[in-house]
Computed example of a mutant assay.
Amino acid sequence: MAAPLPALATDAPAAIARAQWPFTATEVARFDEPWAMAFLPDGTLLVSEKAGKLQRLDPRSGRKGAVSGVPEVAYGGQGGLGDVLPHPDFARNGWVYLSYAEPGEGDTRGGAVGRAKLALDEKGGGTLSDFKVIWRQVPKVSGKGHYGHRLAFGPDGKLWITSSERQKFDPAQDMRSNLGKIVRLNEDGSVPADNPFAREGGVAAQVWSLGHRNALGIAFDAQGRLWEHEMGPQGGDELNLIERGANYGYPVVSNGDHYDGKPIPDHDTRPEFAAPKITWTPVISPAGFIIYSGTQFPAWRGNGFIGGLSSHALVRVAFEGEQAREVERYDMGQRIREVEQGPDGAIWLLEDGKDAGAGRLLRLSPRA
């Protein structure tokens, strides 16, 4: 791997107000504390609600139906039902993958990923069957934060999982744990023989990269490069280009500091660790991530879009080979939890509404 370059400066552009948006945001539906969404081949949309419900929405008619068979989730804090991801060949095999927080012994919890067959019904919902857990965070620990558990299928056909460090710091550097790691698995949860640490066995064999904090976005670009964003501590949110076997340094280095004020050495003090391509201070609290490939916004093809929680923003990132920079920020007025690209090339957002029915689903289309 080439020597890491310093992260680009975090002089964030001023947020663009609604009157200057190059798109129109249309409310399509509302959900209870939504967390993730994914389109099915028939154009309907699966939306996970953090308390443990999976909904199916037809955006054209507005009809919404529940999907039964969702596993029990450990709801509370940052935990609950997480990501939802259809298999790339869903139309043939019907597999859907879910991530969620699962209860353990005593007061412990951990992220898990399972897959199930989804049968759609005529009422607009569906049923999950043959559910099987294919991956778990190890170990389960106390606390209700930093699960991560974002999911993606790569161009290699493998399942990629962000496993955050559960606010426990040191496990991100401990190969006896899969916390604070990016995990790469076969579609059935088995470990690919060509993973960088496969020969070590155990959970280390699952690991593609390590030294991550709270990773809540993962996406592949058109060249097959994997990009990931994560929340920093007090300052230092990151966008990283993920390299095979690389160590991204947390908690040894960070461009932020601990919440108690204790400083953390910056990345440039330890060049053996892979440095982020962008850092944000003040933070944007990134959540949700796409790299756009549609036709509705042709000027944005190949750009990244990141939802902002504390920043109440949609952040646009331009990539220049293996470098990246923030180019625009749109003031959405609400916490943005999830970003997705629709089949027609529109951009879809989920707000992080915590009250019943407060999480709006928005469709962004070019301004006429």
Rank of each mutant, 00 (worst) to 15 (best):
R270P: 03
E272A: 05
T295N: 14
F297P: 00
P271G: 03
P276K: 10
A287W: 02
P298E: 12
A287E: 09
H267G: 03
F289E: 05
D268P: 05
Y259G: 07
Y259Q: 13
P282L: 14
S285L: 04
P282Q: 06
T279I: 10
F273L: 10
I278G: 05
P271N: 06
G261C: 07
E272S: 08
I291A: 06
A287K: 03
I290H: 10
Y259M: 15
G261R: 05
P298D: 08
I284P: 00
W280K: 00
D268M: 07
I278C: 03
W280G: 00
A275H: 13
I284F: 00
I290D: 09
T279S: 14
I264R: 08
Q296I: 01
K262Y: 13
W280F: 07
F289P: 02
S285M: 07
Y292R: 00
E272C: 04
G294L: 11
P265Q: 14
I284Y: 01
P282I: 09
P276G: 12
V283T: 13
F289L: 15
V283W: 01
T295C: 05
G288V: 02
G261P: 04
F289V: 02
S285N: 06
Y259L: 12
T295D: 15
H267P: 07
A274Y: 04
V283Q: 06
D266V: 11
G261A: 11
G261T: 11
T281F: 02
K277W: 11
G288I: 01
Y259I: 09
F297Y: 00
T281Y: 01
F297C: 00
I278H: 10
P276S: 14
H267C: 06
F297K: 00
F297V: 00
T269Q: 13
P276Q: 09
F289Y: 10
P298K: 13
P276Y: 09
S293V: 06
T281M: 05
T279K: 04
A275C: 02
T295L: 07
T281Q: 05
